[in-house]
């Protein structure tokens, strides 16, 4: 089992990168702060598999939770509505304290 960089409860920021090619990190979460909900396991890297690569080494995949109001300025629902999305480890970095 690949060691994981993050644990459930950790505050993370999704990298804001504009990475060319096939990625599974939608634009709307990039640069946003969320929290690790759970570790889903390790999976082959889709950014390599998409071009015929081996997808190795496998990457930890996390279920990351966000407050909807942190994702959309104009969100009209109650403040405790949430969005969860599955993100590979290389798209995540520790959130800076002041942004949490």
């Amino acid at each position: 089992m690949t060691p994981t960089r993050f644990e459930p409860g950790d505050h993370v920021r999704v990298r804001p990168d504009e990475k060319p090619g096939h990625v599974r990190t939608p634009g709307y979460v990039r640069g946003k702060n969320g929290r690790i909900e759970r570790i889903l396991g390790t999976f082959k890297n889709p950014e390599s598999l998409a071009y015929g690569g081996s997808g190795l080494p496998e990457s930890p995949l996390y279920k990351v939770g966000f407050r909807q109001t942190d994702l959309w300025h104009e969100y009209t629902g109650p403040p405790n509505d949430t969005l969860y999305i599955d993100l590979y480890e290389h798209w995540l970095e520790p959130a800076r304290k002041e942004t949490v």
């Binding site: 995949l61 599955d86 993100l87």
Partner: peptide
């Protein structure tokens, strides 16, 4: 209702 949290799951990867 506003007292219920709506949790959206975007199945973006292998789950």
């Amino acid at each position: 209702g506003d007292d219920v949290e709506v949790a959206v799951h975007d199945s973006s990867a292998d789950v």
